[in-house]
Structure formats: structure tokens, C-alpha cells
Amino acid sequence: MGGAELGQIFVNAVLLSGILALVALGFSLVWGIMNIVNLAHGSFIVLGAYITFFLHELLGVDPFLSIPVAMVALFTLGWGIQRGLINQVIRAPLLATFLLTFGLEILIVNLINYFFKADVRSVTTAYSGTGFTLGSVRVPYIRLGALGISLVLVALLAWYLRATRVGRAIRATGMDIDAARLTGVKVATIYAATFAIGAGMAGAAGSLLSMIVPFDPTLGGGYTQRAFAICVLGGLGNVANVVIGAAIFAFVDVFVGARLPSLSRAVTFAILVLLLILRPQGVAGKRV
């Protein structure tokens, strides 16, 4: 493996880790605070991608400008799903929430499939495919932009959780639900906010992914699994853990992808399972 190739792998991994962090962020938040592994996370990502696609296709909106629209739409949807459905079974056995979110995933993905067909689509703009080179390493503009926006959103959420009244209540509820109630927190509302923020972040991730990879309604499932792997790698608990997990995942993924392209998913999952067994608290995090 030459130096140039290594350099490209390194840059690709860095570019990938930003968007992966965004993909995993909402998932990690919902899991960490509500103890729900949201298997419908991927369908939220897909919805974000379609919103960007259609705003660009029909109204000519620049894909980057459509991100806030996708976020607001998914935030609203997430709020409704949490209050209307998930909240009804949140204290039922684990399998119930697991299956419920999986049912939602099937439902949403197939509704998209029904309305928009299974065609593979991609968002193409004037600046798609352009980029610059550093020595022999190529850096596409869109991926760089996606990295930048991901980092901004990650930082924004970290700030929100740290510095605002609701953000603090979200963290407090995740740590001790009864103690949070004793300070006047209405848990159902905080859960709805948490789930909605998670969905909103997924929407943003979907918008960005639509510019980077061709997609169809089944794009999301793989990203739910990646999000899970990232949470396991980094551990739950805070935003920094997600970023660390995403970075590790991105490097493993890009490296394995370059060396063993056909087995990349098997290797990634083998690593994940091994890690689960050896270090269930994650590489970076404390035991959860």
C-alpha cells in the first residue's frame, strides 16, 4: 500500500466519519435517554433524502438549503410518532419496542416505495463531482461540505444539551427519571422532544447522504446498523462518544473496504460482535 493510497484512505475516512457521526447522533440520543433502540431510524434518514431530492427536483432548491426543511419535517414526525405510538409501549418488554420500531421501519419504507417507486435516485447539482486535490489526494467539495455541516450540527446538539433548559432536562431524565420528575419534568414531553430531535438529526443526515450516494427506499436499514455499531464502539452517554465511535467505524470501514471490498460488511460485523462480547461498555465510554 503506497503513501498516496494511505493518504486517500485517511481523507476518505475523515470525510466519512463526519456524516456517520450525524447518522448515529440521533440514534444514540434516543437509545441513551429513552433506552429504545430505534430501528426506524433508517427510515427517517430515507425520508430526509427524499425531501431534499424532491425540493431540488421540483422546486430547484439547493440541496444544502433543504436541510432545515428536512429537519423540521422529521422533527414533527418524530414528535407525533413518539407521543402517539412509542410512548404507549415504552415500559413494555424490550421486544415490544424493538418490533414496534421495526414495524414502523417497514411501514415507512414501503409507503415511500409505494408513492415514489423503488428507483435509484441521486441529487445532482452543478458542483457535484467537483473537488480539489491535495498532492495525489482528491477531496470532493460536497463531501467536504457534508463534513462541515455534520460537525456544525453535532456541535449544535452538544451545545443544546449542555446549555439549555430543555437540553439539561433531557440529560437529567436519561440519568434518573424519578429524580427528574421531582424537579417538575413531564417525562412524556421530554421523551417526545428527545425522539423528535433524534428524528430531526436523521433527517439532516438523509439530506446530506442524498447528495453523496445514490439512494432508494431501502437506503436506511444499513445506516441503522451502522448507527448501532457506532454506539457500541463509542459507548452511550454523550456526543463525544458518538464522534469517537463514528471515527473508529469510518476508519475500519474504509480500510476494510479498500483491502477486502467483498467482505467489508462481514468483517465490520464480526468486529462489532467481538467488541460486544469483550467490551460491552464500548471503547470510549463507561459501562452503561
Binding site: L85, Q88, V89, A92, A96, L99, L100, F102, G103, L104, E105, I106, L107, I108, V109, N110, L111, N113, Y114
Partner: peptide
């Protein structure tokens, strides 16, 4: 065409 969608709904209703 809506087959999987309706199955999704059925799962959701059963779980709830």
C-alpha cells in the same frame, strides 16, 4: 402494492 405497508401497520397495532 401496499402489502408490506399494511403488514407494518398490523405489527404496530399488535404490539401496541
Amino acid at each position: 402494492e401496499l402489502h408490506p405497508t399494511i403488514l407494518g401497520v398490523i405489527i404496530v397495532l399488535f404490539i401496541v
